[in-house]
Design a protein around this nucleic acid. Structure first.
Length: 227
DNA sequence: GACCAGGCACATC
DNA sequence: GATGTGCATGGT
């Protein structure tokens, strides 16, 4: 991308950020007591509302299963029962257990050792795991490992498309690259920016799709949303 | 009661 | 490579 193109885009993204931040203040996203809990939540939230994920996470904690070794030692039925409220519970049980097995074999079950790995190699390993696609991998890399990757989700695509910053159908990697080349690679900024997108998406794209009261409404300048 | 949610893998063309 | 389908629960 040309330098003027990048700085224009960078300014547009920072304007989005400022409007959302002014509306919400710090989100502190992602919620989770430990990096492992964040990684599990990233798998459980696939195509699923976060409120349902919270129930499954609470179940795991109540059953003392929020640890890789505990999950691997548990009966599969027990894990499935705990994950049931988050939907797709058979698939998600398989995916969580596969992640635990890999984490155990590769890093002795320790998230801190995983996080010490170089970003690109680690991303490739995560993507090679069955059940971990780009968004889930990047959730884990950013929020559980503190790596400077930008997480793209359905809300990101919808909001940028709606405001004409990127085409609605832009592929995952292209949209990730757009953020990562336009913004300073600061983990705290990436975390908070994605958190603000999630909150804005939940509150306005879903609950109030007409954009009433949306912090980003001023950017539309009276034009209807594009989607 | 229909419709949707912060995905992903797999089959089919 | 693009497109369609299964996976499952809970909220609106």
């Amino acid at each position: 991308m040309s330098e003027p193109g990048r700085s224009r885009r960078s300014a547009a993204l920072l304007r989005l950020y400022d409007l959302m931040a002014a509306h919400y203040g710090p989100t502190g996203w992602w919620p989770g007591d430990t990096p492992f809990e964040v990684a599990v939540g990233a798998i459980l939230t696939q195509n699923t509302a976060w409120t349902n994920v919270e129930k499954a996470i609470a179940n795991l904690k109540a059953a003392r299963l929020m640890a890789p070794a505990a999950l691997l030692a548990a009966n599969r039925d027990t894990v499935e029962a705990a994950l049931r409220p988050s939907g797709y519970f058979r698939q998600k049980t398989e995916r969580v257990l596969l992640f635990c097995r890999w984490l155990g074999e590769r890093f002795g079950g320790r998230m801190d050792r995983m996080a010490a790995e170089p970003l690109e190699a680690l991303r490739a390993e995560l993507l090679a795991l069955k059940g971990i696609g780009p968004e889930t991998a990047d959730d884990i890399l950013l929020y559980a490992c503190g790596k400077p990757v930008f997480v793209v989700d359905a809300y990101t695509r919808r909001i940028l498309g709606r405001h004409g910053i990127a085409p609605q159908e832009i592929p995952y990697e292209a949209l990730r690259a757009l953020f990562e080349t336009s913004l300073a690679p600061e983990v705290a900024l990436f975390k908070e920016f994605h958190g603000l997108i999630v909150w804005t998406g939940k509150d306005f794209c879903r609950a109030r799709p007409q954009c009433d009261g949306c912090p980003l409404a001023p950017l539309l300048r009276g034009k209807p949303p594009k989607d």
